[in-house]
Amino acid sequence: MFSKAILRLAVVLMAFAAMPASAALNVFATVPEWAALAREVGGDKLNVFSATNALQDPHRIEAKPSLIARARSAQLVIATGADLEVGWLPVVLREAGNAAIQPGQPGYLEAASTVRLLEVPARLDRADGDVHPGGNPHIQTDPRNVLKVADVLAVRLTQLDPANAAAYKAGLARFTERWKAAMGRWEQAAAPLHGVPVWVQHRSFPYLADWLGLKELGALEPKPGVEPSSAHLAGILERQKATPARLILRPAYSRPTASEWLGERAHLPVVVLPFTVGGDAEAGDLFALFDDTIRRLLAGLK
């Protein structure tokens, strides 16, 4: 009886395995920004899935069954890399049993490998908190990085799906043109932000600061990934008196408690930045993400 059941099961499984794959290229993006970028470059040639949403901390995700199922039929995985997804992506990739998306294969793309990383730690010690040995992985807050990733992504899409090479080339050209125009607009609008001193909740914005010339005085987290203690916050309040900042920045997914505590006592505006696509109602796509980020920063200055 048992062997018959197994036989029946096997027949069902073979039927599943023989199902034709859908025509569009399945793209598994670990974070919403790369899903949005893939949609810009690949348009309707891609079937894009984002493993996380903007309100989740990308460091603390589990290898959920739904992620393994999506990775199983993906042809391209776009990860940030630099150890951002180290806690869950390796498990998802291994459990999925999909040879095409293993690291080193054309079906695996790490965005961080295309840009120069900031804040590369000089020493590696877990006593320093949740450090990323390769450097800060939050590269998507600088639009110049987005452009570099787009170039590499288009090349990879062409390699995986040569039949639609023309569409990817056109998609990249269209995106690059619009993006460069938008960057000019953003840089012009953000001119008053140059040299503005800020506190940050987590070290989420070094690339944004580098692009706009914001001056990061320090992070509310005493160590990356460690919640701020009241003693540490009191220390920051003291430093605020000596070297005053004008804004506190925090990503949408983080807890508000610490930044609001400091904002209230130091009479500083707390600017909640969308951080990635979908981080707030306005940041619906990559263009809107930066429109909204600049708008919120400028509103904070007033």
């Binding site: 197994i6 099961l9 499984l13 599943f16 395995a17 199902m19 794959a21 069954p65 739904s66 393994i68 199922a69 999506r70 199983r72 039929s73 459990e95 999925a96 049993g97």
Partner: peptide
């Protein structure tokens, strides 16, 4: 082990 290529996670093993 075998994971089905479906959106619903289905895994079978022996």
């Amino acid at each position: 082990r075998w994971v089905a290529p479906t959106e619903l996670f289905m895994e079978f093993g022996a």
